[in-house]
Simulated assay, not measured.
Amino acid sequence: MRFAAIADVHGNYLALEAVRADIRAQGIGEIVNLGDMASGPLDARRTMDALMALDAVHVLGNHDRWLIDRPVEKMGSWERPAYAQLDTMHLDWLRTVPSTQIFRDRVFLCHATPADDNVYWLETVTPDGSVKMSSLEAIEKEAEGISQSLILCAHTHIARAVRLGDGRLVVNPGSVGGPGFSYSVPFPHVIEAGTPDARYAILEFSDASWRVAFRHVPYDHDAMAALARRNGDAEFASALSTGWINV
């Protein structure tokens, strides 16, 4: 069993295109998408068209939910520009996507944690704004009740794999389209990938255990950074340009 996991595309069509090409080059036919598909100051319409046409298993992210569960005047700064590009068919399709799924009986899929689509799982933010790895105890607590041997999550845009004490593996594939952002919950902090590459993961079940390979894929990130800048988001433009936020 071998498949690719993508997440956090955030309207970055060129990054998605590059990742899909790399997945094909690896000879992989199955894909799971862990959500946060369109929101951001980029190309929501083309991204949603591509994802809706993709033969993949999808789960809904918090930014996806915010596009469909509230009026536009209550949307955030990443939802409003995406919403303006989307048609009813895109939003209706998002309404059909579940918050969690089981893939081929062996893999549990969620966006952030199994119980909450807007809580960090493998990372913890301290009151001073530092981002560090969560404790094994805290990670295992969120995994209670999940019988699958592989658990996939996303949300933080940080590629990471954690082996639980009972042998289960929790993996965040990193972000296809967003190498950095700032956020105020639970405390103000910054996430930075350090490079502008698109990220995804290849998962393989072999010899009775899971193996993960994290892929970093170059693409024309400068074009996407220029688009973010034209659309008035200097912070996201900086992250797309360098993998760092320098504004």
Rank of each mutant, 00 (worst) to 15 (best):
208 A>D: 15
220 D>C: 02
193 A>K: 11
235 E>K: 12
224 M>E: 15
194 G>I: 05
190 V>R: 13
210 W>D: 12
195 T>V: 13
198 A>G: 07
220 D>T: 00
232 G>A: 11
189 H>A: 09
214 F>N: 04
222 D>K: 10
223 A>L: 08
212 V>G: 04
215 R>C: 12
210 W>V: 09
197 D>C: 12
233 D>Q: 08
211 R>K: 14
207 D>V: 03
191 I>H: 13
209 S>R: 15
230 R>P: 00
227 L>I: 14
192 E>A: 08
197 D>A: 13
223 A>G: 03
193 A>H: 10
191 I>T: 11
211 R>H: 15
215 R>I: 09
226 A>D: 14
218 P>G: 10
204 E>W: 01
198 A>T: 03
235 E>M: 14
191 I>N: 08
206 S>D: 12
189 H>E: 06
213 A>Q: 13
222 D>G: 10
206 S>F: 10
193 A>W: 02
216 H>T: 02
212 V>S: 06
216 H>K: 14
232 G>R: 11
234 A>R: 13
220 D>A: 13
198 A>Q: 08
218 P>K: 07
226 A>P: 01
212 V>W: 05
210 W>C: 12
204 E>Q: 14
208 A>L: 10
204 E>V: 00
221 H>A: 09
195 T>D: 14
226 A>K: 12
193 A>D: 12
199 R>W: 08
219 Y>A: 06
234 A>Q: 13
223 A>Q: 11
198 A>R: 10
191 I>P: 07
201 A>P: 02
191 I>A: 01
209 S>F: 10
213 A>I: 05
203 L>P: 02
223 A>I: 00
217 V>K: 06
228 A>P: 04
235 E>C: 04
205 F>S: 05
190 V>L: 09
201 A>V: 07
229 R>L: 15
219 Y>M: 02
195 T>Q: 10
202 I>M: 03
224 M>N: 06
199 R>H: 15
229 R>N: 04
207 D>R: 14
234 A>I: 09
233 D>F: 11
203 L>Q: 02
222 D>W: 03
219 Y>P: 07
203 L>F: 09
234 A>K: 10
198 A>W: 04
215 R>D: 00
229 R>Y: 08
211 R>Y: 07
214 F>V: 01
236 F>G: 01
204 E>D: 14
203 L>D: 01
230 R>V: 00
189 H>L: 06
197 D>F: 15
222 D>C: 04
230 R>Y: 03
234 A>W: 03
234 A>L: 14
207 D>K: 13
200 Y>C: 04
193 A>Q: 14
194 G>P: 10
216 H>M: 03
234 A>F: 06
223 A>E: 08
203 L>W: 09
191 I>F: 13
223 A>V: 00
216 H>V: 00
231 N>Y: 09
236 F>I: 13
209 S>D: 12
216 H>P: 00
207 D>W: 08
206 S>M: 08
205 F>A: 05
228 A>S: 11
236 F>K: 15
220 D>I: 00
226 A>S: 13
228 A>G: 07
219 Y>L: 02
228 A>M: 04
199 R>T: 05
191 I>Q: 11
204 E>G: 05
199 R>I: 01
199 R>G: 01
232 G>M: 09
204 E>F: 00
193 A>P: 00
196 P>L: 02
204 E>R: 13
